[in-house]
Every structure is written in C-alpha cells, then in structure tokens.
C-alpha cells in the first residue's frame, strides 16, 4: 500500500424504503376534488365528526363515512412548530413554520406550511387561509396550496378550535 490510510470511524448506512401508494376510494375522491381546488372531508353518520383527508371510515366509531362535505380553505392554527434545522432534500430555508391547521367545517387538522407571518407571533387559535398555486399547476397534492397565511380575524378560543362550522367565525 502506497500510503497509510486513516482508520475507519464512520460508515454510511442509508435506509431507503420504496413504496407504491394506491389511494382507496375515499382518498382518491379527496385527491380528485383537491385537484379541482376544493378541500373536502367526510362526516361520520354516528358521531358527526368531519375528517380530512377522509379514509372512508370513522376511526372513533368504526363505521363507514360516505357523506362528503366541502370545507373552507380558511382554518385555525391548532398547534405549530418553528423549524430551525435544515432537512436534507427540503428546499425551504429555515426558520419556517409547520402548523396543524383545522379547516373550517372539519374536526381534525392536517399539517401544512404557514408563511407571510412573523414566526414569533404565530399562536394557537390564529386564523389562517390557504394561498393556492395557480390553477394550471394543480395536481393530486396538498402542494396545490403553497402555504397558509394569517387572516385578519379574531383568534379562536382554545375550546372552540376544531369545532367551527364551514362558515367560520360568522355563526
């Protein structure tokens, strides 16, 4: 050997999991409506909770959810985090906000980005609305929404988060 090499101290051991995801009827319906720029959920016939994205059954009651309901693209911040560490492969520059957002008319939240805000002023109960990409770019993806941004509306009391009707605060 021409020159001595340093001892081995690290190994690269990546794990890659390859999936093929096939949407069932409820998620496919959700994604199809999402491609049209519409957020939809499904209402449980027993407990009346509205789920987004719908899986076709109520996780609490175990009964099929068949009634589709159109939701608002306005919502409420249920929780959030400020991401300060860059994630490999993620093009967004930290710090940025990832939030659990409950759309008006639904009873559970989904995760999305929150922007056009002062990170330090984001808070639970804050009202937000989706900023959609141009319709020509819409696909079967929540990326159709570029991010959510603050609305100039009063905060939602903590015990009412996730319980607003599709008409929002005006009821």
């Amino acid at each position: 050997m021409s020159e001595p090499q340093a001892d081995v101290t690290v190994v690269k051991s990546p794990v890659y999991l390859k999936y093929r995801f096939t949407a069932g009827s409820a998620p496919a319906r959700f994604l199809g409506r999402l491609k049209e720029g519409v957020l939809t959920g499904q209402r449980c016939p027993r407990c009346s909770n509205v789920y987004i994205p719908a899986r076709g059954s109520c996780p609490a009651c175990g009964v099929p959810t068949e009634k589709e309901v159109v939701l608002s693209d306005k919502g409420t911040v249920q929780s959030f985090t400020i991401v300060s560490i860059p994630i490999p492969g993620n093009p967004i520059e930290p710090p940025y906000i990832v939030a659990n957002i409950v759309p008006d008319g639904a009873n559970i939240s989904f995760i999305h980005l929150l922007s056009e805000c002062v990170n330090e002023e984001v808070h639970i109960g804050q009202r937000v609305q989706a900023l959609w990409k141009p319709a020509a770019e819409w696909g079967y993806s929540m990326d159709n929404i570029r991010y959510f941004r603050p609305l100039d509306e009063p905060d939602v009391a903590v015990d009412r988060i996730g319980k607003l009707p599709v008409t929002g605060l005006e009821s």
């Binding site: 690269k12 051991s13 990546p14 999936y19 995801f21 096939t22």
Partner: peptide, 13 residues
C-alpha cells in the same frame, strides 16, 4: 390513483 415514492433515511453512523 397510484404512485411510487421513496422514503430515505440518510444515516451516517
């Protein structure tokens, strides 16, 4: 709707 995707954990140990 069906799509392939890959989840990667780029560990160095």
């Amino acid at each position: 709707l069906s799509q392939e995707f890959e989840l990667g954990f780029t560990y160095t140990r």
